[in-house]
Design a binder for these strands. Sequence first.
DNA 1: ACCCAGGAAATTC
DNA 2: GAATTTCATGGG
Length: 268
Amino acid sequence: MKIENVRDFDLAQTLDCGQAFRWKELEDGSFKGVAHGVVVALRKDGDDIYIDGISQEEYKAVWKNYFDLDRDYGTIKTELSKLHPVLSEAAQFAPGIRILNQEPWEALCSFIISQNNNIPRIKGIVERLCLNFGDRIEEDFYSFPCAERIAALSAEDLAPIRAGFRARYIIDGARKVACGEIDLEKVRTMEIEEARKELMKITGVGIKVADCTLLYGLHRLDCFPLDVWMKRAMAVLFPEMKSSDFGEYGGIAQQYIFHYSRMHPELF
DNA sequence: ACCCAGGAAATTC
DNA sequence: GAATTTCATGGG
């Protein structure tokens, strides 16, 4: 598949800015990963994107949405840049970031794993989760195990992924999703405070993990997750602003700021 | 040996 | 209620 004339999209910036944990960069600069149980390889040539491994129908049904390609990030960046000069700078620093439409359960589970953890280790745990409990698609590439599959396990069964104290949180989340006690597709359309409360019924899910699930898994672009980096950034770079000031695309602003802050630790 | 990591639960004050 | 400690694991 070739998609022509794609603006505001950089593979490395989007896939390695801390919103997703499973994309692998190959030696030639292409990226390979799994979503919706399908392995794809991505390349960029100028403003053209090549997606290997899918049909036209799969592109329209899944991948166009996955990369949020119908949204005009150029206009959004222009509007966000008016809010604050540092936000303008952060957006220009990585102008090719887009917020992915990841699968809700994968996002929820990944950000449960993220708590009090560092990104390389998060990636390792997620990798082992897929390797041990996902379906093998091809050499080195496995699907993300569905909630039903994990719900059938115990915390001890997760020992090989070495998630530590988070193992029982993963199990609790999987069970509540699998049995329908929490319907992530209903959470998608709930009013934001109600949606948060619903996700926080899971042991191990607080406001930050709930907001990450809403932003990255349910594409609620007004959600503005505040982790340690974002709290520092708000205190140092945006002392006069609060998260709600960033508006309906605050989540996109948050991603520019998060990535900019991580790449400039000397600011803090 | 110590400290920290895209937090949240458990405990203590 | 608000502040502090604990929770596995691994890398610096």
